[in-house]
Design a protein around this nucleic acid. Structure first.
Length: 579
DNA sequence: AAATTTCGCGCG
DNA sequence: AAAGCGCGCGAAATTT
């Protein structure tokens, strides 16, 4: 049973909408405060709303968790684009107010959107209004979505899409819950890391003393004036050219290959500048409050279905500062990742039995070496990455033919996806998320490539450009099927972890505050193929087992995906201890 | 002065 | 000459 929440000026309404599994017992619509509606509703209800971010945070604040949800905005984004529903009236209808809602919400945290005054108001300000507009009828939208799913074309297409939508919505719940709980963060530990590397915190607008020294050393090595700003790329490049360093760019990889006295101090300066600007004291002030780091998790924020985040650079926390992620007193962290998720997903997607065999052990790449396909683990790794990303140079391209002979099914799958992209076609993940079509400029370039050219030379140039763009789009679609299907696997994993952790219950009665996770293990971090659970010490081992069991659980629609995908997990006190 | 682009680097 | 995928973010440069 779906219970659809809608809001108007005077309150909220929950409207039952039956689905396949219902026994037909009639239910009535109810009115009231959202939190009361949810508490009084059936526990097995699938709470359905326009946008999880518009409803769930206040429920969590009141101490109320929901078991299942259906996020109409996220579901719509999938169904409007999926190749499996492309023929349905739902997907063929012109854009409507629900699509506009998707845009507003998706863009709420983008740089173009006006930012609120305090960073900490971001979450609230970005929270979309409830679907109060009469143009947005959530009951009607839900019915349309259920119809589109039922009409999806292809083997088990409705089942796959149902799983995808359920996983996406469960992800939305997890995202709201992780924002609510926050990632445990010890500001004092972080500050000690910064002081250890950079020295004492400088006054605003000044460089740490150690960086000032390095800047001086850089100027000396280049025989440059004191006005040279090492943060200015053009200035620095000019000075380096003048000194005969021979650098074409300031990239770390290139600088490391040069033999010049400026390289060492410059690299050290750049590393410190990175730490200072990305995760320095200003970051700490802006993003850590009351021992928690809170980012905005953006479910489905990446075209492939991966999540994005907004605020604090949560998906790029450098190893350098992970020591500051420390469990509360009496609590532990369970840190787990799905080992070599993407190549294993590829093996499953392609039903490549030989690659699946190679992945029986903990290390897929070692298994590939053992199969005799390539000589070294490094070759296996760069070869597989190249196959999944479309690499055409270096070792990666060199070992590709060997991989193609050893694992023809897997390699053929990514080659087919690349070919489809080069032709401008759409590709689709295991559960039915489809890639966006290339834009008009891309199509125009492909058309123009054959029609163009008053000047033969110009025609050739534009043809070359068009081919290059075609190959680039092919690399995108090649990777889309793998990255996107891996993201689906991870979403199902996350949903299963969430359910299993809840079933573990609470370690003790942790007070009367309306806190849904008091005494309970709960998710606090998710990074593509990696999770962190914050758990009372007494439940930490059980939580780790839950994480493992969730990885071994495969929904029917994912059955071709890896049978045994090792989820490596550790119970630790801080994030840095985890690998 | 504000918005946009470029470069570089962190993460998977 | 182009160059393996997907991101977010900050500083400086550049454009409006």
């Amino acid at each position: 049973m779906h219970l659809v929440l809608s809001a108007d000026d005077t309150g909220a309404t929950s409207t039952p909408v039956p689905d396949d599994g219902d026994d037909g017992t009639p239910q009535r619509a109810r009115r009231g405060r959202p939190v009361d509606l949810v508490r009084d509703g059936a526990r097995s209800a699938r709470w359905t709303w326009g946008d999880t971010n518009a409803w769930y945070p206040e429920l969590l604040a009141a101490g109320t968790r929901v078991e299942r949800a259906h996020d109409l905005r996220l579901a719509r984004a999938v169904l409007r684009r999926s190749a499996l529903t492309a023929a349905t009236p739902y997907a063929r209808a012109p854009r409507g107010p629900w699509d506009a809602l998707a845009l507003v919400t998706a863009g709420a945290n983008s740089p173009s959107a006006p930012l609120p005054e305090g960073l900490f108001d971001l979450a609230d300000a970005a929270r979309p209004a409830r679907d109060a507009s009469s143009a947005l009828d959530p009951v009607r939208e839900l019915r349309a979505q259920l119809e589109a799913v039922a009409a999806a074309a292809g083997p088990d297409a409705p089942g796959r899409l149902r799983l995808l939508l359920a996983a996406e919505s469960a992800g939305a719940l997890v995202a709201a819950e992780m924002h609510h709980a926050g990632l445990p963060w010890r500001a004092d530990v972080h500050d000690a890391i910064l002081s250890g590397v950079l020295g004492p915190r400088p006054r605003p607008g000044e460089r740490p003393a150690r960086m000032e020294e390095l800047a001086h050393a850089v100027r000396q090595a280049l025989d440059a004036p004191p006005t040279l700003n090492p943060d200015s790329h053009p200035d620095l490049l000019r000075a380096m050219e003048y000194a005969g360093v021979g650098a074409r760019s300031l990239r770390k990889g290139e600088l490391e290959r040069l033999d010049h006295p400026v390289v060492a101090p410059l690299l050290e300066y750049k590393a410190m500048q990175r730490l200072l600007t990305a995760n320095g004291w200003a970051w700490l002030d802006a993003w850590v409050r009351d021992g928690r780091f809170r980012t905005e998790w953006v479910v489905g924020g990446v075209v492939t279905g991966r999540w994005a985040t907004s605020g604090g650079g949560a998906l790029q926390l450098p190893r350098q500062v992970r020591r500051a992620v420390v469990a509360d007193l009496g609590w532990r962290l369970v840190v787990a990742d799905a080992a070599q998720l993407e190549p294993r997903v590829l093996a499953g997607l392609a039903r490549d039995e030989r690659m699946a065999d190679a992945g029986r052990g903990v290390d897929l790449y070692a298994g590939i070496v053992a199969s005799g396909a390539v000589a070294s683990r490094e070759h296996a790794k760069v070869g597989m990455l190249g196959a999944m990303y479309g690499g055409t140079t270096g070792d990666s391209a060199a070992v590709l033919p060997r991989l193609a002979r050893a694992f023809p099914a897997a390699i053929a799958l990514v080659e087919r996806a690349a070919g489809a992209g080069e032709r401008g076609e759409v590709v689709t993940t295991r559960l039915g998320r489809s890639s966006p079509p290339p834009d008009d400029a891309w199509r125009a370039a492909q058309q123009g490539a054959y029609a163009a050219g008053d000047e033969p030379a110009q025609g050739e140039a534009s043809a070359a450009r068009a081919r290059s763009q075609a190959r680039a789009w092919g690399r995108f679609t090649r990777n889309f099927v793998v990255q996107g299907t891996a993201a689906e696997w991870a979403l199902c994993w996350l949903a299963s972890i969430r359910r299993r952790l809840w079933e573990l219950g609470a370690a003790d009665d942790a007070g009367s505050a309306p806190e849904p996770f008091a005494g309970r293990p709960h998710l606090v971090f998710f990074l593509h193929d990696e999770v962190i659970v914050h758990a009372p010490a007494a439940l930490a081992d059980a939580a780790a087992e839950a994480v493992r069991d969730a990885a071994a659980e495969r929904a029917a629609a994912l059955r071709r995906l890896p049978r045994r995908l090792p989820a490596e997990r550790r119970v630790v006190d801080d994030y840095a201890q985890a690998k």
